[in-house]
Amino acid sequence: MSNEWPLWEVFIRGQHGLSHRHVGSLHAPDADMAIKNARDVYTRRNEGVSIWVVEARHIAATAPGDKGPLFEPSESKVYRHPTFFDIPDEVGHM
């Protein structure tokens, strides 16, 4: 069995109110140490208020070939975007 520590993906909330964002990866023997390592590696410059780690093998992802079917249909649904609708200036901010 390989004795390389598992790979973890690190997500950090930069400021209160923001979402966690993927910042990078690291190795750690378990989740507790992964969080500590993330704190030491990825918040050296005061970058975070909250950390998530997840072992890389647990991430499910879209395959590159799915790009067309998964994402292109939403391109045609322009009515989901506010700028689709012309509202007269007189109505005021909406």
Binding site: W5, L26, H27, A28, K36, N37, D40, V41, R44
Partner: peptide
């Protein structure tokens, strides 16, 4: 022993 520990010790 490993980069993560190197960085943590420096902190």
């Amino acid at each position: 022993p490993v980069l993560e520990e190197d960085i943590a010790l420096a902190n």
